[in-house]
Design a protein around this nucleic acid. Sequence first.
DNA 1: TCATACCCTTCATGTTTTCTTCATGTTCAC
DNA 2: GTGAACATGAAGAAAACATGAAGGGTATGA
Lengths: 226, 226
Amino acid sequence: MRILIVDDEPELVEQLGRLLQEQKYDVEKALDGEAALDKLFDHSFDLILLDIMLPKKDGFEVLKIIRGEGIRTPVLMLTAKGDVDDKIKGLDQGADDYLAKPFSMPELLARIRALFRRVAEHGDPVLGTKGLQLNTVTREVIGASGPIRLTPKEFSILEFLLYNRDRVVSRFNLAEHVWGEDFDPFTMSNYIDVHLKNLRHKIGDGEGTIIRTIRGVGYIIDEDGR
Amino acid sequence: MRILIVDDEPELVEQLGRLLQEQKYDVEKALDGEAALDKLFDHSFDLILLDIMLPKKDGFEVLKIIRGEGIRTPVLMLTAKGDVDDKIKGLDQGADDYLAKPFSMPELLARIRALFRRVAEHGDPVLGTKGLQLNTVTREVIGASGPIRLTPKEFSILEFLLYNRDRVVSRFNLAEHVWGEDFDPFTMSNYIDVHLKNLRHKIGDGEGTIIRTIRGVGYIIDEDGR
DNA sequence: TCATACCCTTCATGTTTTCTTCATGTTCAC
DNA sequence: GTGAACATGAAGAAAACATGAAGGGTATGA
């Protein structure tokens, strides 16, 4: 499950991110409205935590734009004051729920679970391609010849590639997503390659036909294979 | 099993609480609708005893909201008058049973057991796996070589794992269920591991074949073992 | 009241799995 | 061919989980 946190208070974003990551959610962060839109247009999410007061573009604008673009990802609005007008305005524009700051973490977690529960009734949490199924809730992966045991990093990589199926994912995006805060874009190390190799091996993809390498660009899982 | 009692009469709540605690249920209390919602959003329960006449938000509202949020915890409505209309309204909105005040304690206990039985699907309160049986009513656990004495925490952990058989349970979920309100998500302590170790020892699961560890994810009791 | 038993938590330490690093090999575009 | 990008195997570092033992709190009964 992928969550985008949009708030201009870095500490809050950090704290939220850590908590949600502990819950095994995949977390992306944006500190202003435009950064949020960038991420939203680039990738798909299962939930957006959206502050109203934001630099560049406020929460209402962001909400309006993405709904206008047909992005129906559930949105949980965060308001600073518990302002009822804000609540109404948000819900009018297509927010799914709203939570007044300050809120307790358990409260937020409960809301998130509730939203996901609602979502789960429609879409199912299984991502898949050519003889490969990944369940984002139970974290099970089933290959052509039975269940596959992946490590957390491997799982996260595969999940991200499946989320962005038919789209080339740069190793930068991949790393940014899987390693989050800890990702150092200037590292000389090649751990991404190593994890990809191990992942390919485990899913029986020695030839790179499931996860294809696009030299100089990144990796892709596409349906047709070309 | 965790039960939330929602009623605005403190004495009744106290009395009920004591009775249910004697029955080894874990009990939480709320005196009005909003307090109930707070608790329900914060933690998971296995049963809700819900009065209709409540301050702030009445029982119907509470029921409607939590069902709207996708919380499917069984609800036993308590009505002051034995009003048939109330009964119908409650059941319509997703209550599972209803009991007219005043009621006798044995009557209530019987209803609670009946609900739990219904939830357990099998018609009996026994959960089990590979040479291991757990009776949620008598709180007896029987292993391959006879009865096993578990401490309350151990019992609660095993119960939760069996309840979620074939599903991976994160240590967070586990802690939330077993410790309820008292659970501190940021603790550095490893008491969960310790209890799990003791539990495994008592049920003769030294190798972790009954309760399997899914590294980086959580624990699972699954039938096939894989 | 005191002693006892029991359970929960904490801490220190051991074990296993996973992550990262590094050295080296291969492939592809130019 | 040559260089850049990617792949691979092995090994040490780090993280996650397991274990044993000790201390504190609470209930029970002498």
